[in-house]
Simulated scan of single mutants.
Amino acid sequence: MTSLSPRFRRSGFTLVELLVVIAIIGVLIALLLPAVQQAREAARRMQCSNNLKQLGLAMHNYHDTYQAFPSGYIHVNVADNKGHWTWSAFILPFMELGNVSDVLQVGKVKASDALSAHQDVMQAKYDTFICPSDTGPSVSSTSKCAGCAIENASGTNLGLSKTSYVAVNSSAYVRANQATNFGDGTTGATGMFFKDSDTRMRDITDGTSNTLMVAERAYILNNEWFGSSELFATRDKNAKGPDNHQHPDKANYDQGLYRTLCTTLFSPNITIGSTTSTNKAENHGMSSMHPGGAMAVFADGSVSFLPETIHSNTTGTTDTVMEYLGNMQDGQVIGAY
């Protein structure tokens, strides 16, 4: 029998050749996907940096208008579990959200009354207050912690709009009143934001480029709940203000102040339960889904990435770079971190 002429022969891949091609394509995809993910994270980190720049600019515009930065929260006489307006609610007009501020009448009516009248507004999503790398719901969960919600005027417990950003309260545990001794932070808040704070530029004696103003907090990091923060208000405990380390009825610190303010006592992205802290308050610090650290804005408006390798401790004295960054009057020179 004669063989077929070349023009009648079938062309194609053998099984071995096909398997080799598939293997090569698989390798290329495996190499390409991490690069795509890294590019996406770089874009998200840039957007987060832009959000913090906007927050820093809003803080400065607020200061120019009122000759002081907004208070960490404004204390008013409210019943247990009702809300106190916070710093992030007061800067809404300077974040191109003046319409939201006008509708809610921030600072003019009580937060819980505003929640009753405008629940949809106080549970909406505001992208400029959310890191695009962060996870979790856009409304804080009432099942996660008592302080993640406030009661409206009729006593219904409701979550609030989420934000990924918290103002810096102290170099030690979160406290409501300003420190009388800035050397250790045990007498009160050493940072810029606390109860009725109204901090001015001249109060930041360490210099605005050496003092943190606002930082990130993740919703969940390494399977541990950090909870991000609530945008508009912080929850009262027993009609004595939000829970904190100076609260007369302090216990668990889960009803209030750390939900909107943070400490620099811990390194960024610290593992919960990894310190000698007796109350395991590591989620009162700063954290993010960005690999290696968290973003923060300084009092001069500059934004920096703080690596999680910055040393911290819980000795009670201000003696680490992280603590220096959160203390506006410690008199310490901050080196490279």
Rank of each mutant, 00 (worst) to 15 (best):
F129V: 03
F129Y: 12
C131Y: 12
C131E: 10
C131G: 11
P132F: 13
P132K: 09
S133I: 11
S133G: 13
D134M: 08
T135E: 04
G136R: 03
S138H: 09
S138P: 00
S141M: 07
S141H: 04
T142K: 12
S143T: 14
K144Q: 09
C145H: 13
A146D: 07
A146S: 08
G147I: 07
G147R: 04
C148G: 06
C148N: 13
A149V: 05
I150L: 08
E151C: 14
A153P: 11
S154Y: 08
T156W: 09
T156E: 14
T156K: 15
T156P: 06
T156C: 11
L158D: 08
L158M: 15
L158K: 15
L158S: 14
G159I: 07
G159C: 08
S161K: 09
S161R: 11
S161D: 08
K162R: 12
T163A: 06
T163G: 06
T163I: 06
T163C: 09
S164P: 11
S164F: 09
V166N: 04
A167I: 02
V168M: 03
V168F: 03
S171T: 00
S171A: 00
S171V: 00
A172G: 02
Y173S: 10
V174Y: 08
V174N: 09
V174I: 14
A176T: 15
N177S: 11
Q178K: 07
Q178S: 06
A179V: 07
N181W: 01
N181G: 03
F182I: 00
G185D: 02
T187Y: 01
G188M: 03
G188D: 02
A189M: 00
T190A: 02
T190D: 03
M192S: 03
M192N: 04
M192Y: 01
F194Q: 10
S197D: 12
D198C: 09
T199A: 14
T199C: 13
R200F: 06
R200W: 09
R200A: 11
R202M: 02
R202F: 01
R202P: 01
I204Q: 02
T205L: 00
T205A: 00
D206V: 02
G207W: 05
T208W: 08
L212E: 04
L212D: 05
M213Q: 15
V214D: 07
V214A: 08
V214N: 12
A215R: 09
A215K: 11
A215Y: 11
A215Q: 13
E216H: 13
R217F: 01
Y219Q: 04
Y219E: 06
I220N: 00
L221S: 15
N222W: 15
N223T: 13
E224H: 06
F226G: 05
F226L: 07
F226A: 04
G227P: 01
G227N: 02
S228A: 14
S228F: 07
S229N: 07
E230R: 07
F232Y: 06
F232N: 04
F232Q: 05
T234C: 15
K237D: 13
K237P: 10
N238Y: 15
